[in-house]
Amino acid sequence: MSDKLLEIKNLTINYTTEDGVVNAVNGIDFDLKEGETLGLVGETGAGKTTTALGIMRLVPNPPGKVISGEILFEGKDLLKESEDDMRAIRGNFVSMIFQDPMTSLNPVMTVGEQIAEVIELHQNVTKSEAWEKAKEMLELVGIPGPRVVDYPHQFSGGMKQRVIIAISLACNPKLLIADEPTTALDVTIQAQVLDLMNELKEKFKTAMVMITHDLGVVAQVCDKVAIMYAGEIVESGNLVDIYENTSHPYTHGLFGSIPNLDEDIERLNPIKGLMPDPTNLPTGCKFHPRCPHAQALCKEKAPVTTTLNSGHRVKCLAYEGLIKAPALTGNKEVG
């Protein structure tokens, strides 16, 4: 019996659409211990949200389907649980925060009712006890208790996101999945919300999967990082591994595209090309069309995961000894 809270093994999720089969998530593995925070980083379309929905078993079923893999939460495979059991788990042991706070709250219910709803669903308490608990949660996220009777449209974006955090933590879940929780907020509010999440995470010992495309956020909040590209995890490890010993050319490209405040440059440094079409992924290594170090073999052979040192894994033929290792220059320090 492992000490891991969450273990994802070889998860593959597809969407079957009229335009073809979308390979959203292609055989990813990662794990999380209690209280740990994993940053799931990648561009739009990398498969991060699909992974999150997969863990909650909320992948919309007509087009989407989990093709293979295991999602072990406290040892139980969530993919094999019944829908009734999953409903008991959602909101209670595993919670999710969505991207846009503006639309995540029901406009015709007060915020108190929405927080109380999750409490009533999972805990055996009376309506008034749930209401009291809702008030407490609101205070916990920094909103005055009396505002529990207000409607979502009476709150600003940052405060709405705090309400959503209150809802997600109301039943003290073991795992919180946050899908780009601060993307829709401006930077000052982003800082406040991240501080709040850190504080509550420490207090409740909640493990967290933080989905983001912002490496700054990752540095502030996460213990481990997994970089996703075209549905695969191309590099994963702890903060030092990723930020100082960057190994995968894609990760290196991501860091390289962040503008440097100290230098005066004329053009930004993006990774050339675009995210591949998920219905028509490249052969071999999926990053090869955009990789500055790509060689002939990269088009033919798909890399497997190589472990560089304890915890630091990467998917690149260079580390399998099959091609010459790329010369990657140093990165920013972990802030």
Partner: peptide, 26 residues
Amino acid sequence: DQEFIEAAKAIGASDKRIILRHIIPN
């Protein structure tokens, strides 16, 4: 298809609850 319905599913609400308490009032 709105996000607060997905959020309601994410807290473990049943279909009946979602229809009666979330969809119909809206």
